[in-house]
Every structure is written in structure tokens, then in C-alpha cells.
Nucleic acid binder design. Structure first.
Lengths: 183, 183
DNA sequence: TTTAAACATGTCGTAATTGACATGTTTAAA
DNA sequence: TTTAAACATGTCAATTACGACATGTTTAAA
């Protein structure tokens, strides 16, 4: 689908940024639902610039270090809006290696299943805490501002997803323990 | 990571299957958390056989149609168990194009945001119904059998995830409507 | 002043995955 | 008997993505 380009266009639609800045955004703000390494971002920026969807100016940091500051063009904005209004099919495969592992965990001793579940729960709890902090940072009511409101909705989704995931893992652990005690 | 091979080994550990059967499994049972097309499965089967982790026998359907029925070998079982006991890092990026779209939905009119949310909710509700049926099919209490118990845990996770997702989408729609009315 | 972390931009080989191409058989219904 | 759906196995080109390689500057702390 070429989703990466729209992620970049979306970010540049909010503010001008360098490839380095974009990389940071993918590592922090977007990390929750999209990811890209700089090795993927730089070539995509080049392609986008070649197609005229973005443009850049060179800025000098210090005395010599060149920094390319990208901005979205009018054509870029049109492309972004077109994508943003497209009905997306729910991706049927949100690949989840842990669920796959749990699915086949019948081939390991029951105790080890618990040993797999517990660190997963810890990881998801840590993520949940982090997302809750971010959400709290946005205020207690949905923001008025359009961009902040979008952020709020997505963050809310992250919190709810992780709450549900933690609840599931806790339930799994409880069920596994009951089962162990019964036998 | 080469996860596909373990998905195949896991399936063959339950029963002998042809490439075609495996493809069907990926489309049905595993569809919830993993996916693979036949164009990926057939080459992987060849590699797995070359490495001695699986073996196959040729069966004839009808008069001429050759069918390769694969079975897991002792070495395959060892490889599967090793993977099945490995602590997995939570994949930090469960890529979700819809959340990305919603995140950047500040560039479209508020009404269209609702128009994006509603079909998503429909799709997730349909999936939830489907998963609930599957879960009901497994009985009302966690199964005794090891394999069925694993299936149960994963299915439970699918139902909880989709419940949470639907609740989120409903909340988003409600918040968007409130916002529209206020302005 | 040195030195480590952050800033900054790129390329390259490889692996994973998809969709299209390619071909043919068997089964069950019309 | 025809015909459509399901059975059955493969290849190939293109895309997406990652980790490693490669290089150098700037900033702030020790």
C-alpha cells in the first residue's frame, strides 16, 4: 500500500522536519502503531521529493553540518488528504508472535507456559503505564484542537488495547495456575 | 526471525498435512494471529524438508494427482520445543494503518472521521461475533486437553481484544458526535 | 580538554511477504 | 455431461523492512 509515505506526509503536514526528526517521531509518538527505521525513511524522503510531494531546504547546524529540512507541498497535502479519506479494510492479520507461541504451547510443560505469560504481562503493563502518562499529559477532557483531538482518540485506543491485553494475560495466568493445582 | 517455520512445525506437530491443508489452516484457525500465503508456504516446506525438520510421503488422490503429506521429524519437534520455550520480546510495532489514519485525521472534515470509524466498527463487530462463536464451540469451561486449552487461551484473547477494540471505536464515534454538536 | 551522547545522512545485502502467473486434477452439483 | 468449485503445487517479480556498514559533526558533561 505504501503506507510509510503517508505517515511521513502526515508528520510533515504538522510541522517541517529533517529525516532525523522524522526518525525520532517514529520512535516515540508513532511507535504505538507504526514504525520505520532511518534506513527506510531516507530513501522514501528522496522518492517523495522526486515526486514533488515534499520539498526541502538545507540548513547549517554549527559551521558545516548540513541538515535537510523537509516541508509538505500542495500536491503532498492533496495526496495526504486523499489517503486520509480512504476507507481502509481492517488488516486481517495483526501478526502476533506471542499468541502463536501460546497457541502451540501444548508442546511444553504447563509450568513453562506461565513462565512465558508473566514477562509478557510485565511488558504490557509497562507500556500501559507509559500510555496512561501520555494520555494524562493531554488533559482530562478531549482536547478542542483538531490535531490534539486525533492524538487523544488514538492514545485512548492504545490505553484500552493494553488494558484489555493485561486483563487477558492475568486471566491466562490465573487459569494456568488453577489447572496446575487441579492435577 | 523465521517465525513462519515454527507456525508450520506447530501445525504439523498436531497432525500430518499437505501444503494445501496448511494453507487452509493459515486462512482459518491461525488467521487471528498469523498469516501466510501458499506462495510462502511451499518454499518454506521445501527448506524445512531439506533441513530434515519435516519429511513427506506422496499420496495419490484419484488416479494421478500427487499430494505431499508432510509430517514433523524428531529434529523438527526439538526445534519447535526450543522456540516454544523462548522468551519473546513484545513486538513494539503492531502496525495498524487505521490508527495511523485516525492520528492524521485532523486534515479531513470532522464528519468524515465518523465515516471512517463506522465501517471499522462494523468489521470488528463481525470479527468479534465470529470469534465468540468459535469460543462457544470449545465449551463453556476451559478444556482439559492440553492442545484445546492452548486454543482456548488464544481465542479468549482474540475475543477480549476485539471487545476492547469495539468499545474504543464506539467511544470514538460518541466523542466525535458530541464534538460536532457542540460546534 | 577529552570524550560520550546526540545529531545527521546515507547505502547495501538480505529476509519476509504479496500478488500474479502458471498448470493441472478431482469432486459434486446442475 | 458439462461445469464450477475445491483440491493441489509450484515460480517469479516487486515491495517492504531490518540490521549492518559507513561517515562525519555538534554539544554538553566530566
Amino acid at each position: 500500500m505504501g503506507t510509510l509515505r503517508y505517515a511521513i506526509l502526515g508528520l510533515l503536514n504538522r510541522r517541517d522536519m529533517s529525516g532525523y526528526d522524522l526518525t525520532k517521531e517514529f520512535e516515540t509518538t508513532l511507535a504505538e502503531f507504526w514504525g520505520a527505521k532511518h534506513s527506510q525513511i531516507y530513501p522514501e524522503l528522496k522518492a517523495l521529493a522526486d515526486e514533488g510531494l515534499i520539498a526541502y531546504q538545507i540548513e547549517i547546524s554549527g559551521t558545516v553540518l548540513e541538515k535537510k529540512v523537509y516541508s509538505i507541498t500542495v500536491r503532498g497535502r492533496t495526496a495526504l488528504r486523499t489517503w486520509a479519506e480512504t476507507q481502509l479494510k481492517m488488516k486481517s492479520v495483526p501478526k502476533d508472535e506471542f499468541r502463536l507461541q501460546l497457541y502451540f504451547s501444548d508442546c511444553i510443560p504447563p509450568r513453562r507456559r506461565i513462565a512465558l505469560l508473566e514477562p509478557q504481562l510485565e511488558q504490557h503493563r509497562a507500556l500501559l503505564d507509559h500510555l496512561r502518562e501520555n494520555l494524562a499529559g493531554l488533559g482530562q477532557t478531549p482536547p478542542e484542537d483538531e490535531a490534539a483531538f486525533s492524538d487523544y482518540l488514538v492514545l485512548l485506543g492504545g490505553v484500552m488495547r493494553e488494558e484489555s491485553c493485561c486483563a487477558w494475560l492475568e486471566r491466562c495466568i490465573a487459569l494456568c495456575r488453577e489447572r496446575l493445582e487441579k492435577q
